[in-house]
Amino acid sequence: MQSSSEVDTSSAAPETSGARKAASGSRWSSLPTVVRRSILLVAIVLLWQLYVTLSGVSPLLFSSPLDIAEAFWEGWTSGDLVGATLVTLRILGLGMLIGMLVAAVLTTLATWTRIGEDVLVLLTSMLNPLPAIAILPLAILWFGLSPSALVFVIANAVTWPIAINVSTGFRTVNPTILMVGRNLGLRGFKLVKDVLMPAALPHTISGLKTGWAFGWRTIIAAELVFGVAGGGGGLGFFINDARYFLRIPEVFAGLVTIALIGIALDAVFTWIERRTVIKWGMKSGT
């Protein structure tokens, strides 16, 4: 990237932060975000490939991007990686569902009763800081080396961030908006559905987002432990299995899959936010 003192800053006008940095004299900033990121990605992959080719590092320790791409392609076409991904996602989905239900019950109790609120605050302050994976030994003790143990761990991981966010959302609803709802004669469930829920939506979405992120990290960690124990069949198991048989590119292909799904989940939430709370000015976009 060359820098120049007579940069055309007007081309960077749509993006304010870019415009500000462009004024300091770099043509780089005037490029669109997608282009900047793509260039960087390509550069990193090229450097990586160069390093592997030139340094002669052992293929048992490190794979080249080309090998990984090949393993990735094979994994997806042969169905191994697809199967592993589906197993993981199914367990994650089940855990999320249970976690969301428990969170919904806790939040309802916390919103309507004082004792419910106290219970939620207490449980959350104790269980939320605990890394969810720490529950796994107990879960294995209770459920054995079965998917149920994983589901339990995931449910525990996602319940607390969701519950605490949603109940904060309900409790911090703008009192004027609430008065407007009551002024229209809204009560009970209709008040909750038409006023409280949309008003609490920014918190709800960020709770779900955090919940998914926690759940995703936790399930991979739990499956790796399971993989070591020889059970499962999900992505963590896939990675462990590949390592055991020294199929190093497949290890990397598993990691790439995990990263891509994480990115996709994040994109889904960003998409939902764009269409709701950001569009309504309830949360500022980034």
Partner: peptide, 19 residues
């Protein structure tokens, strides 16, 4: 009780449903 027979215009600006 609050009711639509007494419609209120509040002093606060944030009295519209943002959504």
């Amino acid at each position: 009780q609050p009711g639509p027979d007494r419609a209120v215009v509040f002093q606060e600006f944030d009295q519209l449903f943002p959504w």
